[in-house]
Amino acid sequence: MSEDLSTWASREYRALPWVALLQHRLAFFGLMLLLVMVLLSIFGPWFGQDPDAADAATIDQAPSGTHLFGTDHLGRDLFARVLLGGRLSMQVGVFAILIAAVLGGLYGLVSGLGPRWLDHLMMQLLDTLLSIPVILFAVLIQATGEPGVLRLSIAIALVSWMGVARIVRTECQQLMRTDFVLASIASGSGALQLVARHLLPNIARPLLVVLTVSIGQALILEATLSFLNLGVPANIPSWGNLLGSGMRAALSGAWWAVLFPGLAIVLAVVAINFIGDGLRDAADPRRRLRL
């Protein structure tokens, strides 16, 4: 029985539903879209126009053949700046969620494996934290210090780890109740070691879904905070900063200054969410053929 369960678990892990994911039309579309965006923002700035070249002759120009997305109030090419901005925004998003994964993972482990009173206390704290609106929390963190990329990532992580903690805790507790863990504890092998060996396989899939979706939300949060001047320092282009500095131009008619950076965010988040949906659906036992 215990042997069955552990092999079952690790088989599930190895068979992470890549195939199903690629068959999922939307997820495939999302994956491709994201890939294109990532490649463009990594390599684009090397080949295209100089994102920092100001030019008094081309201030606030509408999109055209030479400037696909138009130019900003200093005459810089917005297409190049959106690509460059994507670099930073995606970096911040991924980095923040990695920190959140570690934070949430540790919190969930302690809560899930610790004594009942501690678990109760920690869950109470988690619920309370969840009742604080994310923007409020993040702004408080950001407003108490100088803006910076690292600080922003940490701030986003600090408001994003709760989902991970929940999943890890639940899985830990479920795992601790299974026969084979109980049996191995009874026979004297370390619970922690067991958890390390069996937790990851069980948890990989739901965790992946949550982390994927969180990256999308982190992108939105980055944009929001930077837009409010509480995120990335204003001189570094990120999608949020582009929107923040484009706002004034847009209010006097230069709509392209806010349309394109915003569309970039929406596309990236949609792509990420589609991948998340694909991961979730691939794990759904109710998934069906179409008749």
């Binding site: 998934r287 069906r288 053929l289 008749l291």
Partner: peptide
């Protein structure tokens, strides 16, 4: 009566 399953038709 046919049911659609993930793996095929039953």
């Amino acid at each position: 009566v046919d049911y659609a399953l993930a793996s095929g038709v039953l």
